[in-house]
């Protein structure tokens, strides 16, 4: 007799174990929204190093945290700021100025070209925007060539193939049918490009719920599902909570102490308090506190 359909739901530690030194990891979301923070904290807790991180287009303080913790060797993103919280994130700025971070400089159009080439198994995607700019100069992986049909100058944006995409979404069933609330930003593009995907979700919902609205299924088949309520905190979890501005400002202030005064102590305190001391996601939520969490309502 045929066996039961297999559940893809895994726990935090198993999910963290899928991330290894030196991998290329795509991290979903957008600026201060929808980052899979349980998995981001796992990366730091496990001391994973030398990652090539394909941050969201646009990136945000989630990537700055990984730079601060020394996990990133090479960064692919188009923007490193936090909008009204901070124009340029401090650890990124400092690491870039000191030449400590390899940067795949690109804009959003080029970013999605790289993921699209990966999804389609192509070496590169042609793109016109960027001709006449400094991108081919500051990013030698981007080449200018002549289109063989018309002879027009074109940029070749190389494929970037994530070994693993880690995506935050509102819901998934146990079989990896993921449903975002909101637009899902560029998460689909990461999922299509990556060899494997873990979806970190607020709720694991019954398969029957998915079948009520298949149009809402944004990622039709991921490799693993991690349930983590409030799992995008301190960033927004669309449909559940807005970003925690107080917490984001606390992190940015710690970064500014380093960027402006070379003082890493405030960040070390942040790291200890929120990431290294809490052993699990539930421990983290206890440190943040129930009053803060329930204050982050959307309406």
């Amino acid at each position: 007799m045929i066996s039961e359909r297999k559940s893809l739901v895994i726990d935090e530690s198993t999910a963290g174990g899928m991330i290894r030194d030196g991998m290329t990891i795509a991290i979903g979301g957008f600026i201060n929204s929808s980052h899979p923070m349980v998995l981001v904290r796992q990366i730091i807790q496990r001391g994973i190093k030398n990652l090539t991180v394909v941050g969201a287009a646009s990136g945000g303080p989630d990537l700055d945290l990984l730079i601060a913790a020394g996990c990133i060797k090479k960064l692919v993103t188009t923007y490193m700021g936090a909008e009204h919280f901070c124009p340029i994130t401090p650890f990124f700025r400092t690491a870039a100025q000191r030449g400590e971070l390899e940067i795949f400089e690109c804009d959003e159009g080029m970013f999605y070209c790289a993921l699209r080439a990966a999804a389609q198994g192509l070496p590169s995607t042609p793109w016109k925007a960027g001709l006449g700019t400094s991108f081919p100069e500051v990013n030698p992986e981007i080449k200018v060539y002549s289109d063989p049909i018309t002879g027009e100058p074109v940029l070749a944006i190389p494929a970037i193939v994530p070994d693993l995409a880690i995506i935050y979404a509102a819901h998934s069933d146990a079989y990896g049918n993921v449903q975002h609330i909101g637009t899902g930003f560029g998460d689909r593009a990461m999922w299509r490009a990556a060899k494997r995907t873990i979806a970190q979700v607020e709720r694991v919902i019954p398969n029957e719920e998915v079948r009520k609205n298949p149009l809402a299924t944004s990622l039709y088949g991921v490799d693993a599902v991690l349930r983590a309520p409030y799992g995008a905190h301190p960033f927004a979890g669309p449909g559940y909570y807005i970003e925690d501005g107080i917490h984001i400002r606390e992190f940015i202030a710690a970064g500014n102490a380093y960027a402006k005064n070379n003082d890493r102590r405030p960040f070390e305190e942040y790291l200890q308090k929120y990431i290294l001391s809490p052993k699990t996601h539930e421990d983290y939520l206890e440190v943040v506190g129930i009053r803060r969490l329930v204050s982050l309502h959307e309406h």
Binding site: G59, T78, I88, F92, D107, G109, G130, T133
Partner: peptide, 14 residues
């Protein structure tokens, strides 16, 4: 001085 990055300006302005 490291800037924030181009965001989508390169492609949109093109």
């Amino acid at each position: 001085f490291r800037g924030p990055g181009a965001v989508g300006t390169t492609s949109m302005a093109h």
